[in-house]
Design a binder for these strands. Structure first.
Length: 550
RNA sequence: GCGCCAGUAGCUCAGUCGGAUAGAGCAUCUGCCUUCUAAGCAGACGGUCGGGGGUUCGAUUCCUCCCUGGCGCGCCA
């Protein structure tokens, strides 16, 4: 971050002195190829037309200004007008000092500017255990929340419990029928019902507590079964999420929302602004006028509410609670619902940028390349809990967070269990463990570890591999900012793989304790400490542990 | 039929608010453990960025038309 800020301010000063506006699309970042230098800027290219000069001439001017700076070791022009800059080792060494001084806050950013954002994720119907697809949404949502917090947002996390509606009635009925079946009654199975083993378990549990249960009239039996089953399944979901290191601050009940009259209030609000009309005995929302394909029903002609109706009320409620910005994380199969929700947000008087919807693609669960079928209704699935128990939360989370969320993901249980580069989580964790081993050894040998490293000591860090590591350390905050702005936690994963790669190269090429020089050893230890701190910090944003030994 | 997402090395995937010679891991091949963890390192091999047009000084990135795969198009949730 220091490098980027430093070069930006040098260039801005020069551009301003030339009387030119700073281009909005200026990109100042590490070049694709290391050979081009430490940082590359495309400012000359962008300003050429405005300045009435060739990119080359403009670049000549800028490069001269940049070269004069003490932190710049070299600056050159390449390609169609790129400005390439190499900083002095002393400049990079400052990164280690900064990392030491800032400690756990190193890499954190203030781009969020304190904006209050709510992240709502998982929100699976409590009709059965979480499966692997929910796990992906859970990992993405949880990490995004951690990331946004680290980037200076005020973050609230929430799980929306869809405990009203037809699916839930079906759940109650399914359990009730199992109860009756277990009690030896003749059962006529309806068309749609939940067939999973867990339904039988719940029915058995209920019967054990109340053997007379099956004698209740249907309506009462269904109700009791529904309440019990939902509570039981929800408890299971909470437990599974906890084991996956995912937390929600608020569990928000749809039923409670409806009971509070919030839906009717939302209707009033929409009606007042002219967004609704009656047609064929139903209440409609003018979604088409706000960009959706068609208008949508809010209250059906039979008087009951649609899911969409309570969802509008729910989002209205979120804004009323003071969240400036909402992030919803949904399964990609709900993408058709996005325009409708956006229309609703507009009707509530909010700006489009106050709602972000992250669509998480479905997960293909494989075992040795063979697909494992998943369907909650049919009761065949690999639960999140089973997967976490088999491969571990670290490997599962890293796998989910190493892909952008809108691409399909093959999750092969055998591959994720392998401890190879097929599984980069170990590569990153191993880098951390290796550093810890060196630090332990240093401690055993009584090498003094100065807590605040001084410049003289750090000036010994001049190897290319050391400069690479320091450049990576400096880049951490840039990565955090761009990951936060793009709502893309997977950028962190890729950064960590890069950083771990540089560490492993360095480790193989240079001895730290055997450096032959006590000062050099101490300088290198300081560097390693910073690297391990950054790795641990990045991993914690992914919800992955940083083991001290492996 | 309409819409959304995807198509990048043999495989799994990054990169894409237009920028340099398109990257990584796996697989294959060649080397490296008497020294801090070989779950590692160094190197080689590997590409019409699905295809055709267009815009631009410049396109994997933007527009358009096709092809392929997935998913949506309910007074379901």
């Amino acid at each position: 971050m220091r490098a980027k800020q430093h070069l930006t301010s040098l260039l801005q000063a020069r551009v301003a002195a030339m009387g030119l506006p700073w281009p909005a699309k200026a990109v100042i970042e590490p070049p694709k190829e290391k050979q081009f230098g430490d940082l590359a800027a495309n400012v000359a290219l962008l300003l050429a037309k405005e300045a009435g000069k060739s990119p080359r001439d403009l670049a000549e001017d800028l490069v001269a200004a940049v070269r004069a700076d003490g932190a710049v070791a070299a600056a050159s022009i390449a390609g169609p007008g790129f400005l390439n800059v190499v900083f002095t080792p002393a400049f990079w060494q400052e990164s280690v000092k900064e990392a030491e001084q800032r400690g756990e806050t190193f890499g954190s950013s203030r781009v969020g500017n304190g904006v209050t954002v709510q992240v709502e994720f998982v929100s699976a119907n409590p009709t059965g255990p979480l499966h692997i697809g929910h796990g992906r949404g859970a990992a993405v949502g949880d990490s995004l929340a951690r990331l946004l917090r680290f980037a200076g947002y005020t973050v609230h996390t929430e799980y929306y419990i869809n405990d009203a509606g037809r699916q839930m009635r079906l759940l109650g009925l399914s359990v009730w029928l199992r109860v009756r079946e277990l009690a030896g009654r003749e059962i006529v199975w309806p068309e749609d019902w939940y067939k999973g083993e867990y339904i039988i378990d719940i029915a058995k549990e209920m019967l054990a507590k109340d053997p007379g249960l099956a004698a209740l009239p249907d309506e009462e039996g269904c109700d009791r079964c529904f309440e019990y089953a939902m509570r039981s399944i929800l408890d299971g979901i909470k437990k599974d999420l906890e084991d996956f290191r995912v937390s929600h601050e608020v569990w928000f009940s749809e039923r409670g929302l409806v009971a509070s009259g919030a839906v009717e209030k939302a209707f009033e609000r929409l009606r007042g602004a002219g967004h609704t009309y009656e047609h064929n005995g139903a209440l409609w929302f003018r979604a088409m006028a706000l960009g959706d394909d068609k208008d949508r029903v809010l209250r059906k002609s039979d008087g009951s509410l649609t899911y969409f109706a309570s969802d509008i009320a729910y989002h209205g409620n979120k804004y009323d609670r003071g969240f400036d910005r909402l992030v919803d994380i949904w399964g990609a199969d709900h993408h058709g619902y996005v325009p409708r929700m956006r229309a609703a947000v507009a009707a509530l008087g909010k700006k489009p940028e106050q709602l972000d919807v992250i669509l998480v693609q479905l997960v293909n669960l494989l075992r040795d390349g063979q697909q494992i079928a998943m369907s909650t209704r049919a009761g065949q699935f690999e639960t999140l809990a089973d997967v976490v128990a088999e491969v571990g939360a670290d490997a599962a989370r890293f796998m989910f967070l190493s892909r952008k969320s809108d691409s399909h993901l093959d999750f092969d249980l055998e591959l994720v269990k392998q401890r190879s580069m097929e599984n980069p989580v170990y590569y990153v964790q191993y880098a951390h463990a290796r550093i810890c081993a060196v630090l332990r050894k240093a401690d055993e040998r009584g090498i003094p570890m100065t807590p605040q490293t001084d410049g003289t000591l750090l000036s010994l860090l001049t190897e290319n591999a050391e400069l690479d590591l320091m450049r990576q350390i400096d880049r951490f905050e840039d990565v955090i900012e761009s990951a936060a702005l793009n709502l893309s936690p997977h950028h962190i994963s890729y950064y960590l793989m890069d950083l771990a790669g540089d560490l492993h190269s360095y480790y193989a090429a240079h001895q730290v304790l055997g450096a032959g020089d006590d000062s050099l050893a101490r300088a290198r230890l300081a560097l390693l400490r910073s690297v391990s701190a950054v790795i641990a910090s990045g991993l914690s944003l992914l919800g992955v542990t940083a083991p001290e030994s492996m």
